[in-house]
Structures are given as structure tokens and as C-alpha cells.
């Protein structure tokens, strides 16, 4: 069985030690997913697997057989940016840009989680079906993506500007 990456079928690596992140960066020349810790502690390596956000550094590539992976390269290109990518540029949702692909992938799936009604640590009543869209909810839900440059305000602004309607 193969792994689908940005719509293309890819053979899993022979060495089962290869993480999904190393598969992308070292083997497939897709360096959009970044390595900030290789320990699950920063979120820079966030990609989408069947639409869910996961950390590619703690995922073995072998586990991805039969699954569909989307990386930042599959979301938009410099000439054709996705609306959220465009909003990151406009709202200055980054400085060095290193955490950025992870932030964007994370945010896209986060909006889906919000819409699905997945509760969060700051949700007042976890039994309620709909979650109110608020800056606090976004901040809590994005907390798995560190940004040492401190572009947090811009990131939240970019997500709010683009995704508020979809999320509600």
C-alpha cells in the first residue's frame, strides 16, 4: 500500500525508522514542514493526515500507508496562495517564517474542529454542541504551535479574518 502525499502516491520508506517528517524533508524534497524539536514540543512539523492535524515528527512514515497527507506545499503556491496564507502575509502572522507552515496547517484543521464542536480547555460548557468563536478559543487551540518570533497576534488576526465565517 502506498501513502498519498499532496495527491500523489508515494512508496513508504524501507527503513521503518523514517518519520513522516524526514520522509517529507529528506526523501521527497518537500521541506515545507519544518523541524523545530523532533520531540512533539513545537508544532512546526504539523501536517494534515486525512484532514486532521498531526505532528509529522512523531509519526512513523510506515504508519501512513493507506492515508492521505497534505503538507503546506499542497495548500497553495507563492503564485496561488490560499486565502489563509494570503491573510498571514497581510496581517504579518510571522517574522522568520519558520513556524509558519505548521501554523497554517494547524489553523486549517483547527477551524474544522471548531465547526465540528470539539471542546477545548477554555470552553465554558463542554456539554454544549456549538462552540462560540472567540479569540480565547483560537489561542488555546493554536497553543500547540510555538512561535519564538512572537507573531501570535498576527496569526490570530489572520485566522479570524479568514475563517470566522467558516467556523461559525
Amino acid at each position: 500500500m502506498s501513502i498519498t502525499i499532496n495527491g500523489k502516491a508515494v512508496d513508504p520508506p524501507e527503513d521503518p525508522r523514517v518519520s513522516l517528517l524526514d520522509l517529507l524533508r529528506d526523501h521527497l524534497a518537500l521541506p515545507g514542514a519544518k523541524m523545530g524539536c523532533n520531540q512533539g514540543a513545537c508544532g512546526a512539523c504539523t501536517v494534515l493526515v486525512d484532514g486532521e492535524r498531526v505532528l509529522s515528527c512523531l509519526t512513523l512514515a510506515a504508519q501512513m500507508e493507506g492515508r492521505s497527507v497534505t503538507t503546506i506545499e499542497g495548500i497553495g503556491s507563492p503564485d496561488v496562495l490560499a486565502p489563509l496564507q494570503q491573510a498571514f502575509v497581510e496581517h504579518d502572522g510571522f517574522q522568520c517564517g519558520y513556524c509558519t507552515p505548521g501554523q497554517i496547517c494547524s489553523a486549517l484543521a483547527m477551524v474544522e474542529e471548531l465547526r465540528r464542536g470539539v471542546p477545548s480547555h477554555v470552553t465554558g460548557d463542554v456539554s454544549s454542541e456549538a462552540i462560540a468563536f472567540s479569540s480565547e478559543e483560537l489561542r488555546e487551540r493554536m497553543s500547540g504551535n510555538l512561535c519564538r518570533c512572537g507573531a501570535y497576534n498576527g496569526i490570530i488576526d489572520a485566522i479570524t479574518a479568514t475563517c470566522r465565517e467558516t467556523a461559525e
Binding site: 524533508r25 524534497a29 518537500l30 521541506p31 515545507g32 514542514a33 519544518k34 523541524m35 503538507t71 503546506i72 506545499e73 495548500i75 497553495g76 503556491s77 507563492p78 503564485d79 496562495l81 496564507q85 494570503q86 498571514f88 502575509v89 497581510e90 504579518d92 510571522f94 517564517g97 519558520y98 509558519t100 507552515p101 497554517i104
Partner: peptide, 21 residues
């Protein structure tokens, strides 16, 4: 003015040191 390298950075196309083939 928005960052001139913004489009590259948000699309994962800015090449960092450990990414040069």
C-alpha cells in the same frame, strides 16, 4: 508594506539552511 518574502514563507518555499539539496 507586507513582507516581500511573505508569499514564499507562507507556502513553504523559502529555503532554509538545512533544506538545500
Amino acid at each position: 508594506v507586507s513582507r516581500l518574502d511573505g508569499a514564499l514563507k507562507v507556502s513553504g518555499k523559502a529555503t532554509f539552511a538545512a533544506e538545500f539539496p
